[in-house]
Amino acid sequence: MLAKRIQPMASQAKRLYVELMFQVMGRALQAVSEVDSEVQGEARTLPERFLFEMMVMPDGSKLIVEHIGDGRFHYHGNSAPRPVDVSIKFKHLTHAFLVLSFQEKTSVAFANDRMLVDGDVSYAVRMTRVLNRLEAFILPKIIAERAVKEYPANLHLPEKLISAAQIYLKVATHFVQTVRA
C-alpha cells in the first residue's frame, strides 16, 4: 500500500533529477567547449550548425547543443531550432536515471541496449568522448570512475580543479542569466 503511494513520487523525483542533470550537462557542455582544448579538438571535426540531442523516449526530458564553429558548443535547452543531426535516446526514464546518477557507465548503458543512436554513429561516438571528458572534469574522481570507461590517466588534480571551477562558474552564470531572462 505504502509502496504504491510512494511509486509516483519516486517516479516524479527521477523525472526531476534527469531534467536537472540534462540542464546542468547542456550548460556544462557549452562551458567545457570554451575551456578545454581537447574538447574543442573533438568538436572541430563536427559540421558547423551540427545539432546534438540527448533525450528520454518517447517524449521526455532532453538536452540540445549545437556546434557553432571553432569547436564551441551552444546549449539550446530542450527545444531544437531545426531537426537534430544526432540523437542519443534513452529507452526509458529509469535507464536515463541509471546513467545520470552514475550507477551505470555510459559505455555499459550502450552495451546494455539502454539507448539508441539516431543519426551518424561516428558523430555519436565523438560526442560520447566529449561527454566522458566533461564528466572526468566536473565529477570527483571516485564518481567519475563510475561514469566513464577509463578515467584519463593524464588528467591531474591541478588541471582538473582549475577546469572544474571554470566550468561550474560558467554553468552558474548561465543559470542566472536564464532565470533573469
Binding site: S107, S122, V125, K149
Partner: peptide
C-alpha cells in the same frame, strides 16, 4: 578507427 561505432563496445578505452 576512433570514430567507428564498434569502438564503444571495446572493453578497454
Amino acid at each position: 578507427a576512433l570514430d567507428d561505432g564498434s569502438i564503444m563496445f571495446n572493453p578497454k578505452e
